[in-house]
Amino acid sequence: MEKQDFKAVMEVKDLFFTYPGVSEPTLKKNNLTIYKNKITALIGPSGCGKSTLLRAMNRIHDLYPGCEYKGKIDFLNPQSGKMENLLELRKENELIGLRQRVGMIFQRPTPFPMSIYDNVAYGLKLSGLKNKSELDGRVEKALKDAAIWKEAKDRLKDSALGLSGGQQQRLCIARSVALKPEVLLFDEPTSALDPISTSAIEELITELKKDITVVIVTHNMQQASRLSDYTTFMYLGDIIEFNKTEKIFVNPSVKLTEEYITGRFG
């Protein structure tokens, strides 16, 4: 791999992950670097562990007891400039702090059963923001950042469930962006959306990387090649290849990667 000049925000080091009640680890000795303000795509056939790896990065796995981690995921502390292993976090409030720094967008839009405004303000209120005018400002900014302000501004008090699927997904992104996370994890964010909504989301993700580091799991190879700066190809819990996206898609160094990208299996 070529020498990088970019700053790493997250470094996965020799990570093993085992689900409860399973004897074999799902992730085997994964090594991966996530660079600041870049989009890193995780690709690979179903069951290869890409979502599992993604869900380790904000420890959302820990909602279900019995998951086992081995290895390290170092995460840059922006105050001290030092890398800290996020797998060492144990207390609930430490994990909550982590999840406010590492946001997550899911496959299907998940608006909460409340108004559009409250959806975006929810995370802010959780983090202790109470001032009404500051809340209003942050909500408006987040909705603008997520390119949904135009559609939503006249119906902020309406239920978020009345939005279309693509709008709901952008609302979910707005909700996460409002918390000013350092990293945003996308778990196949467009697989439930039509092509037009998909391209709106893709455009949005590209915009977001100015401020936020993005990791995206996708089944769609065109999407990975369009969007990402780095691509990781995973297979059966191993990271087969990690490199700049153009390198992976034009001239992969591993035969398996080439076979997957050209559609010979997967």
């Binding site: 904000n58 959302i60 909602l63 609930e92 909550i96 702090g97 999840r99 406010q100 946001g103 997550m104 899911f106 496959q107 299907r108 998940t110 909460f112 059963p113 409340m114 929810y122 995370g123 959780l126 983090s127 979910c172 909700r175 996460s176 918390l179």
Partner: peptide
């Protein structure tokens, strides 16, 4: 996934029950 997305925004268990599970 709805509960997870609330947790992913830093909600506690109590907040998830109060703000997501109960209204849903």
């Amino acid at each position: 996934v709805l509960k997870e997305s609330a947790y992913a925004m830093g909600a506690t268990k109590f907040e998830v029950i109060k703000d997501v599970v109960m209204p849903y």
